[in-house]
C-alpha cells in the first residue's frame, strides 16, 4: 500500500474488550497475573476492578497497524501504558484505535496511534513503522 500520504488520518476501528478476552489473552501470552482475571485480587491491590493487560491493548493496536499493510509489514511498534483499561464483569469495553501518518521516508511510513477507552487515552506515544 503506497498511497498513504503524510498527515493522512486513518479510519478508527473499535475493539471490544471483555473478561473472556482477558482470559484468552492470558492463555495466548502466558501472562496469568491475577489482576487481569480476579476481581477480588485486583481490588486487594488497590485497583478499581480487573484491568486489561497493557500488552493486550497494545496487541489490539498492533492489529490496527497490521491492517494497514499486513502483519509482516510492521517493523517497529512502541507505546506507553498511561492509563489502565478497567474491565467490569459482563461488560464489553470499547477500545477505539485511530492513526495518523506522521512521516514517510525510504519506503517506510511512521504511523502515530491514539487509543481511547471512555474518552481517556490509554496508550501514550503509541507509534508504529510500516514497510510500504
Amino acid at each position: 500500500m503506497s498511497n498513504l500520504q503524510v498527515g493522512q488520518e486513518l479510519a478508527p476501528k473499535t475493539f471490544l474488550i471483555n473478561r473472556a478476552l482477558l482470559v484468552s489473552y492470558a492463555n495466548a501470552s502466558g501472562d496469568q497475573n491475577p489482576i487481569h482475571q480476579n476481581e477480588e485480587f485486583a481490588k486487594s491491590v488497590g485497583l478499581p476492578d480487573v484491568i486489561a493487560h497493557g500488552m493486550l491493548t497494545m496487541a489490539l493496536a498492533g492489529k490496527y497497524l497490521s491492517e494497514i499493510n499486513g502483519s509482516e509489514a510492521v517493523t517497529e511498534f512502541s507505546a506507553r501504558f498511561t492509563k489502565p483499561v478497567v474491565v467490569p464483569v459482563n461488560t464489553d469495553v470499547a477500545l477505539i484505535i485511530s492513526g495518523k501518518v506522521a512521516e514517510i521516508s525510504d519506503g517506510f511510513a511512521k504511523v502515530e496511534l491514539t487509543a481511547l477507552c471512555n474518552d481517556v487515552k490509554v496508550l501514550g506515544m503509541a507509534k508504529g513503522v510500516i514497510k510500504l
Binding site: A28, G62, S66, V74
Partner: peptide, 17 residues
C-alpha cells in the same frame, strides 16, 4: 491462539507483539 485474540486471520506470520 495469539492471532485469535486480536482477530487476525493471517496465520502465515505471527502478529507484531
Amino acid at each position: 491462539k495469539f492471532a485469535a485474540v486480536v482477530g487476525e486471520n493471517n496465520l502465515a506470520v505471527a502478529p507484531p507483539t
